[in-house]
Structure formats: C-alpha cells, structure tokens
Design a protein around this nucleic acid. Structure first.
Length: 589
RNA sequence: CGGGGAGUGGCGUAGCUUGGUAGCGCACCUGACUGGGGGUCAGGAGGUCGCCGGUUCAAAUCCGGCCUCCCCGACCA
C-alpha cells in the first residue's frame, strides 16, 4: 500500500476523549474512529489488524477441531423467551420491531441460536462430539461503554459451542478450547492468565476467564504468590484473617452516639474492625414473584461479595434495599442487627462471623449497638456461607499458605462448562447407542476480537507509538523513502524495492509521500510495523538499505541485493518465536 | 441509574468571570527554500461556538430546558 493513497491520517495529539493508551494510539495512528459511545469504525490499518487476529483465531479453532459457521445477528424474541434470558439479560438486549411488528433481538451472544441449529440438524450420538464456532458482530446495550475498544456496544466476538454426550466428552472439548485460547492470545502477543471465574447469568458448572493483567482493565483478579491459584475476585476463595480468641461474654446494649459506619463504630469503641459485624440489606429479585428481603452479615473487616451472595441465593439478582423498604422492614440503617430479627427475613452470614466471638452489632435502634453478640447464641442465620470479598494481602484459599495479590485486568476470553441448560431449554436430544434419548452437554467459549486488538497495543507500545507483534501488524514492513521527489535514483530504487518485497509475498506499507524525514519516521513509529526500511541517498550510495526493528530499535545496513531475504528471515523469526511461545503456553496450566 | 467533568473548523485549545469583528498551534491547499527524527518563510481555504428557547439594541459569553461525549461507581456470558 502506498501511504500517499492510504485512507486515514495520523494525529499529533490524541483526542481528549481517549483516556487509555491503546485508545489514544489507535486513534492517533489512524486505526479506528469513534462514531458514538461504544461504536467504532475500523479504518484500513485497523481493519487489517483485526482480520489478522481473526485469521489466527480461525487457524487455532480449526486445529482444535472446531467448524466455522455464521449465524444471524437478528433473532426472534421468542427464542430468547424460550431460554428465559429476556429476563436475565434484561437491559443489555437490543430489541427492535420489524414492519410486521414482530419483536426482534440483536444477538448479544448465540447460545440460543446454536442450540436450535444443533437440534434441527442432529439426531444421533454419531453426530457428536461437535464444536461449532463463528466470528460475528454482537450487540449489547451496555450501561457504560468504556476504555475505547475494551467495552463497546457493537463488537466482534468469536464464540464457540461444543456438544457432547456426557461429562467426560465435555471435559475433552473444554480442554481443547482452553488450550486453543492460550495459543491464540500468545500468538497475538497478549499475555493472559487463566483464572477461575463466576459463571454469571449464563449459568453452568464452572468457567475460566483469560485475563490480560493491565491497570485499565475492569475485572479484578486474585493471584496467589505461593501456589499459583488465580481467580476472579467474584469467585476467589480466601482464608479469613483470624478472629480475636475469647470466651463468649454477656451481650449488652450500649450507647454509641453518631457511630454509623464500621469505621466510626470501631473508633468510638476502640476495637478492631474484625470485632464488629457488618450488616447489609438487599432485595433479591425473583422471577415474577415479589422481591425478597435479604439480610447479609460479614465481619466488619470484610466486604460483601455480591456475586457470591447471589450464588448462595441460587443466582437471583440483587439490588440494594431502598430507604423506604428499610423502614418497611423495621431495619435501622447504621445500627441494624441480626439479633431479634427472628425469621422475618433470610439472614445470610459469612463464615467469618461463625468463628468470631463477641462481635459488636447494631441494636436496631439509632445510636445504640450490642456488644458481645455471638452467632448461634444470640441470633441465627438462615445460612452460613462464603459471601465475602477477597482482598489484597489475604491468605490464599487454595494452598492456605500463599498471599493473595489483587490485580486489575481485561477479560480477553471466557470458557464455560454450560452443561444441559440450553439443551434442556430447547428440548435437544440425540439417540444413544441403546436407542434412548440423550440430552447433550454443552460448553461455550468466547473471545473478544476487538479486545485483542486493544490489548495488543497495551502490551506493545512505547513513547513513540505502537509496537505490533509480527503476527497482527497491519503490514509486515514499512518502506520510508527520503527525498524521493528530488532524487530519481532513490525514488526508482524505493519503487523497485516495493515491488520486490510484494513479489516475495510480503505486505508492504510504502511511504511515498513528499514529507520531511522526521514526519515519515515518526509516523512509521506511531503505526508500529515490526520492520522499517529506509531508502535514501546515503544508503543508496552504498548500495544498501537501512533495516530497523521497531521493537528494540536495532538497525543494520543490509546490502541491497539481500534485503528481501533479510526481511523474510526476520519476519519468519518473529513469527516462529510467537508460535514457539504458543506451543509452550499450556505447559503447566 | 447515582456522582464528577467537558462540548468553539479534522485534532488540541484560548476567549466566557466583566455581552460588542471568533483567535492560536497542529493538520489541509498554493509557492519557495530545506530535508536522516514532527524544518522555515509567504499566501490561502475551512467554524450554524452541541441543540432549542429566553433576556438584551446586541449572546460563544447571561438565564432555562434538552442532547451528546468522557471518567468513577452501579450494572455486565
């Protein structure tokens, strides 16, 4: 491609709206353009990179035995009613009506469609296992798009779905996808950590996320520095800091004027936070039925983990209780107590409360608290469960020896053991060898293609611009020709080189613009192709071309006759290094 | 949805407090010089100042309403 003809222009300054590095650089280098919140156009350079990411995904999916399909983006709403996800996806569903007033959904994901497709085209156990995947535009009416390409409302996702006869089949299909994921991200130059994850509204029995650790990410993951345990904080198991050992003392009501928060209470009474009990009230939203009040209790030094709490309640979604509801249920904010609550509502206590004697709790009247409350003696919980949030510095819940460190990260991919949720909802079955019907067990596996593009920039850039990995750079090599309007020899040589490289199968971005050297070099650095060739009078006089690596700045003067070979060698070397890393990434995982 | 910030040529911004000709840098066009790290000079083109309404002789500026975008949170296979 001749840069003089390339659509899109580089910017010296990043648009003020762009906050993250990847967003700024992709805008400045002319890869993407924002149309509205959460919707971006890909310009030629960006589109080329995205296509390369997709190609890598295709290669690895194929190698893992998955078959590519393409499913509709518009779905009849009935399909979503059948699975029950009109409710559970709720406000993120984009909906519309056609001219006959049929209600349609813009697909945010495709479990429903793929399950229907499978059901209609499969009837025998001989047809499974099968894994189907597609690369599609998905639509989600996100409450808050953010971070450039990281969270958008229209995006490209690779989603794969496996169908197996039984659990062991699912295990194999899941493992194949898991390994393919590690290879895909590695080949794209994005380091990821697989972490245990909550399965969320999609349901299922276990899932893992592939997280790219990065400060701009919206997920928080817990990594153990001892055993390598890695989990999303939504899920992370940890050991509670020990309680202060003591015999149970008599409960007593005391005056605590102005002490509303745990911090104020602990300060006022001169006790540690772990000697208090924290109460938080929620409403559990029930399908069709009235919302149910939930009284959650954790020890004062911990936070409620709403995802864990929701799972304890069978996955029902939670919302904070309104002030009116707090009054209606006779609770006292700032001094609420599980003591005396009786069976007026469900009380869910964290396991931290169970082993902690003599906690300070509310007295259920303003400015009074109860000291020395003890679970079991003074009050009872409907259920004692793990409903607290792991924090940095906590002991690891897996090895019970290491320390948990919290990191922010971007979710690049997510693999789920779905089970039979969708196959049951769509009455899918295949005949087994013995002639009886078997409901297939499913897995689903997603990758955010746009996120790979963004994360690759986060992972590969310097002060001058992007440093693309060879695997997904929009072109393999840049030719910067200096003074080509003044020097016919240089111009002719650059032109010839452009032809030779392309004839050798290389993808070339030829900067043939009439610009000063500084502009050209800076643009080349910003766009970030792995290799740069400088054709100039100086080099031409030596019958050579300067070759510079974008990643480490190493330069070499290559004899003109060897340049194509040298470029090919460096490119092959870079790709081989990525492939080799991909071969190793699943060792020990 | 709650909190915060911002809308002025393609990008970055000044002007707004105290109403009176819309300014600067980059980018863009023409010419000259220069040219191995965003060069210099000269001359140009391009803006309903987010939208609607109000106040006023006069509104980018003051007042009211709305819209949009960004950040934090809530939410999120």
């Amino acid at each position: 491609m001749r840069m003089s003809r390339l659509f899109g222009r580089t910017l010296r300054e990043a648009p003020a709206d762009a906050e993250t590095t990847s967003h700024q650089l992709l805008l400045r280098a002319g890869f993407i353009d924002q149309l509205m919140a959460g919707a971006y156009s890909y310009m030629p350079l960006g589109h080329r990179t995205k296509l390369k990411v997709e190609q890598i995904v295709r290669e690895e999916m194929g190698a893992a035995g998955a078959q590519e399909v393409l499913l509709p983006a518009i779905h009849p709403v009935e399909l979503w009613e059948q699975s029950g996800r009109v409710e559970s996806m709720g406000s993120v569903l984009f909906t519309l009506r056609d001219k006959r007033d049929r209600r349609l959904v813009l697909g945010p994901t495709h479990e429903e469609v793929i399950t229907r497709l499978f059901t209609d085209h499969t009837s025998s156990y001989r047809d499974v296992p099968v894994t189907l995947y597609q690369i599609q535009t998905k639509f989600r009416d996100e409450a808050r798009p953010r971070g450039g390409l990281v969270r958008v409302r229209e995006f490209t996702m690779k989603d794969a779905y496996s169908f197996d006869l039984d659990e062991s089949g699912l295990d194999a299909s899941y493992q194949a996808m898991f390994e393919a994921y590690g290879r895909i991200f590695t080949r794209c130059g994005v380091p990821t950590v697989p972490v245990e994850a909550d399965s969320g509204a999609i349901g299922g029995k276990g899932s893992q996320e592939f997280i790219y650790i990065n400060e701009t990410g919206e997920d928080v993951v817990a990594l153990c520095d001892g055993c390598g345990y890695a989990a999303n904080t939504e899920k992370a198991a940890f050991v509670r800091p020990p309680a202060l050992a003591a015999d149970a003392l008599p409960m007593e009501e005391i005056h605590t004027p102005g002490a509303q928060t745990i911090d104020e209470l602990a300060t006022f009474l001169d006790v540690e936070e772990r000697q208090t009990a924290k109460a938080v009230f929620y409403m559990a939203e029930g399908g069709g039925e009235a919302d149910e009040p939930i009284f959650a209790v954790v020890r004062g030094d911990l936070q409620i983990n709403e995802v864990k709490l929701s799972n304890t309640l069978g996955g029902r979604s939670l919302r904070a209780m309104t002030d009116g509801e707090v009054d209606d249920f006779g609770l006292t904010a700032g001094a609420a107590s599980p003591v005396g609550l009786g069976d007026r509502m469900k009380v869910i206590a964290d396991v931290s409360v169970e082993g902690s004697p003599n906690l300070v709790a509310g007295a259920n009247r303003p400015d009074y608290h109860l000291v020395n409350t003890n679970l079991g003696r003074d009050w009872t919980a409907t259920e004692v469960a793990d409903i607290a949030l792991a924090e940095d510095g906590h002991r690891c819940g897996s090895c019970e020896a290491g320390t948990i460190r919290l990191h922010r990260g971007i979710e690049m991919g997510h693999v789920f053991r779905l089970g039979q949720i969708y196959s049951e909802a769509f009455e899918t079955d295949v005949l087994g060898p013995d002639g009886t019907g078997v409901v297939p067990t499913m897995g689903c596996y997603g990758i955010g293609v746009d996120r790979i593009v963004a994360a690759a920039v986060e992972a590969g850039h310097d002060d001058d611009g992007i440093t693309w990995p060879a695997s997904i750079a929009p072109y393999d090599v840049a030719i910067v020709a200096l003074r080509l309007d003044r020097d016919e020899d240089v111009a002719a040589d650059a032109e010839a080189l452009y032809g030779e490289l392309r004839a050798a199968g290389l993808e070339v971005l030829f900067d043939d613009r009439i610009e000063s050297p500084g502009v050209k070099f800076n643009d080349a650095d910003l766009i970030g192709l792995p290799l740069r060739l400088t054709v100039s009078q100086r080099n031409h006089a030596q019958d050579a071309v300067e070759l510079r690596r974008r990643d480490n700045g190493a330069t070499e003067l290559v004899p003109r006759g060897e340049i194509v070979e040298r470029v090919q060698a460096l490119r092959a070397e870079a790709l081989a290094a990525l492939a080799e890393a991909a071969d190793r990434v699943n060792d020990g995982r």
